[in-house]
Design a protein around this nucleic acid. Structure first.
Lengths: 340, 340
DNA sequence: TAATTTCAAGAAAACGATTTCTCAAGGCCG
DNA sequence: CGGCCTTGAGAAATCGTTTTCTTGAAATTA
């Protein structure tokens, strides 16, 4: 029968013998429609396999039920997991997610944000606190809500669901210091345009400074989150003298590579060298020894960011700036520092 | 000045002293506009920070530049990587991606597909070949192109970019048989509603049968893709008698767990037991020994699926059913079977 | 130079829904 | 029993673009 591509609302109206307005009301759950008519409409819509045109609907109602997310990459499990949770929560409420990966490029991020606004995203999730001013200005001007994740510092217009990277870095340092280590090193992620990697590094060094260890004496390598970079960075660190007895890695990926290097080089972990990671990815239990690490609440961030986005503007006031706890997960890759 | 929420096309027209039609032409790269006018329009649009309304545009032009993807989960790196590549390629051409995770539930997948159609997705990426008939019927009726990934069997209306899971399972079997193993086992992913997991398992068992090994004598465990499931499944398999000397795991995740169990139980890999994984995830080099595995071209699938989607209907004819090679990556987790 | 094309740009229709107005009918109250 | 309120449903305006149709002017051709 209906060989044509798609029935429109008016076709449903004709079949149900009522006006388009009434069809619209039924389809949108407006209760002011009599039972009989309502059922006729529903039957007609089903029969015609009617699918509403979202563009038309969005245009007229100014509600797109579309949300955007711009994350650095999906190749890092920590972001993939967050997005997974975000999407699941949004979907429960019939909200769709447009996903963009910026590859840690905040100029590209701006372009993507622009496109999201154009597409009618009602809210946008961003990672970290470091963005082009025009990105945020544009979102504000177009009245698009936005949430930062992986950071705990909100702005006037943007909420934050995350944690304090600087504090996390300090916690790593404190833990290693408390174990008795005095010669430390760090393998950080790329810190350029990345407030999270920077925060972790700075917090780590700051805490060491507080303990009387000069930052300049602490070897810090930097590398993208790849196992191989962890390996090569560790090699570099182990070549510095005096050799560190404990190393903080900005990600479990780097830490896994670092451990890999130690195994190859015949360095015993944690006897000769303690390694602490960051993220608590699933892989943290794959290294031998298993990885001591700081746990990042990726799934919680996704879920809570979704909650913020789904909340009414009124409720949102209570939800901005949500700092989640970072917890230390002690496994086998860290041990006491040798007594000096 | 422009305190209001958003300038519209007509405002740009007024400022540029021309008609809305002309503004539209300029913004869409229509060359039939004089240089002077064109520049005035561009300047006016910039001054007003004009952002087009995508809904209106889509409604009128019937082009949304929106594509949907429904994957089982982002928590498995193999899908995350594919989506990463897909999104990157689509973004190059200004196409946005709406992402859905179905949690391996093909009924939920149907609901999500419906929503994607409603949102105006011009194409949809699906994983595997097993779907509700009404899902595909709906896409066809609404003239939405679709691509299967992780499978190589296309349908009349749907293209396929992927590989042959059955063949991959056979390859794993062949490799282990050639190493001299005669007592084999398998740890598969959940096979219900999952043609890929099923294909791998069936191919594996079929090849063994061809070599005279009765499928009924081959212990097969099944579990979701979690390290812990690999561990516990391996424990089960090692309790069966006669104990297998080689195990094929449906995913590197499961294989990693399997190796973990062996280490705990004091079984030497590969001396006592050979383990081969599937996917070639980054983590395959983290186990000790490193994992022998079959490499899945996740990134290629994402990229090529995007190419298919971006192609014109005419070009698409040449691109449907694209079978990519699965290659064996030999590392340290497999070795010769004991001579009987 | 007149007739015919070509070109640039405006006017107005159209895309497919939602929403605002409007109105008729029925129920309720005094 | 008449006026007022409530309720259900239709008519028509509207959302912000793109596209089609027109038109006047300029360029080309005979």
């Amino acid at each position: 029968m209906d060989n044509e591509e798609g029935a429109k609302l008016i076709d449903v109206a004709k079949l149900a013998e009522c006006s388009p307005a009434t069809v619209s009301r039924v389809l949108n759950g407006n209760p002011t429609v009599n039972r009989g008519v309502r059922e006729r409409v529903i039957r007609a819509a089903a029969e015609l396999r009617y699918v509403p045109n979202g563009s038309a609907r969005a245009l007229r109602s100014t509600r797109t039920r579309l949300v955007g997310a711009i994350i650095p990459t999906l190749d890092h499990a920590i972001y993939a997991t967050m997005v997974d949770a975000l999407q699941a929560r949004l979907a429960e409420k019939g909200v769709s997610l447009i996903l963009n990966t910026s590859t840690y490029d905040i100029d590209l991020e701006y372009e993507q944000a622009k496109l999201l606004v154009e597409r009618g995203a009602e809210a946008v999730l961003l990672v970290g606190a470091e963005h082009r001013p025009q990105t945020l200005a544009m979102l504000e001007q177009k009245r698009v809500a936005y949430v930062f994740t992986y950071t705990s510092t909100a702005t006037d217009a943007g909420a934050a669901v995350g944690f304090d990277n600087e504090k996390a870095g300090r916690a790593a340092a404190r833990y290693l210091l408390d174990l008795g280590h005095t010669r430390l090193g760090m393998i950080a992620g790329i810190t350029q345009d990345n407030d999270r990697a920077k925060g972790r590094r700075d917090g780590f060094l700051r805490e060491l400074a507080k303990a009387g260890i000069d930052a300049a004496s602490v070897p810090v390598a930097e590398g993208a989150y790849k196992i191989e970079n962890g390996r090569s960075s560790m090699k570099m660190l182990m070549a510095s003298s005096p050799r560190p007895t404990a190393v903080f890695c900005g990600s479990d990926i780097l830490a896994a590579g670092a451990i890999k290097y130690c195994v190859e080089a015949g360095l015993a972990v944690p006897k000769d060298i303690s390694i602490i990671g960051f993220d608590n990815l699933e892989i943290a239990v794959l290294t031998a020894p298993e990885l001591t690490t700081l746990e990042v609440p990726a799934r919680d961030m996704g879920r809570l960011a979704a909650d913020y986005i789904l909340a009414s503007p009124l409720q949102r006031r209570h939800l901005r700036e949500r700092e989640l706890p970072i917890s230390l997960v002690v496994r086998g890759s860290t041990g006491p520092g040798r007594a000096n």
